[in-house]
Design a binder for these strands. Structure first.
Lengths: 136, 136
DNA sequence: GTAGATGCAAAGTATTTGCGACAAG
DNA sequence: CTTGTCGCAAATACTTTGCATCTAC
């Protein structure tokens, strides 16, 4: 079964404060990819005293601990999602902003091959597809 | 033979000012992917009166005209390169920041397939590989 | 001549940080 | 207790913009 963000904090030695628990809860329950502002909004509903600085500090901390993944999609604002065991990439609807997660092993393999061809070990990658919905 | 940035401006109806000519020249001669600050530095050597606001305005204009390509690699600053006829993606050395351009048609085809599978028409994409050089 | 471009400084965003008060382990 | 965290506001980094002046066409 899936380890919760709180559990991940404990196993990674991240101190669990009230604020972090709330941020963890909100991110756990978010199936989209909120930016810091949006996350702050959601968090504020549970605890209106949390400051945006804490939200910024926490997402950064969680990202460095491998608990959250940060994305810099078009739009200037960083967006976050809970790190999942299975890697996936994103297909972004340029009209609505909707994000579809997908996995394609063939592409993954080809990426490794490309890095290898140039003498590199692949440590990370980013693949974003931007599209418009076809009228079916 | 390759059309210069100046020629592209003319064919796209972009007014050619002194400043734009200089920025065009610097970008033409850059084989790397400078950010606005770096571009401003290079441009300043040719004309110290050009303001950074003009550089920002010009790269945006050129991007919208399809003359330059903008990239938001890790690091917060937007980086630019001259648009080339042939599409390519980037392999970034996370140690040195060096960028290798590559083309992989198989990946391109698979991307289209993925978009198609979800009912989308692919209008743009971004593929960045981050790696470290293997000790050969 | 006129619409659009430039330089400057001020204004915007997004994000980070110094600091005294406070809480987790 | 002690180290690290929080809230606040000020600071920073990158980028955009208002306005008077100037320039390409």
């Amino acid at each position: 079964m899936k380890e919760t963000i709180e559990q991940k904090c404990i196993s990674k030695g991240v101190k669990l404060t009230e604020q972090r628990k709330i941020i963890a809860k909100v991110m756990s329950e978010s199936s989209d990819h909120p930016d810091v502002d949006e996350l702050y909004n959601r968090v504020s509903k549970l605890d209106s005293k949390i400051s945006i600085a804490t939200v910024y500090r926490t997402v950064k901390l969680f990202e460095e601990a491998g608990i959250l993944a940060k994305h810099d999609f078009k739009g200037g604002k960083a967006r976050y999602e809970e790190m999942s065991e299975s890697h996936h990439d994103h297909l972004i609807d340029i009209k609505t902003g909707e994000i579809i997660e997908f996995v394609n092993d063939e592409i993954e393999i080809l990426q490794k091959k490309v890095a290898d061809k140039y003498g590199y070990e692949l440590v990370d990658h980013k693949l974003e597809l931007y599209g418009i919905k076809k009228k079916s």
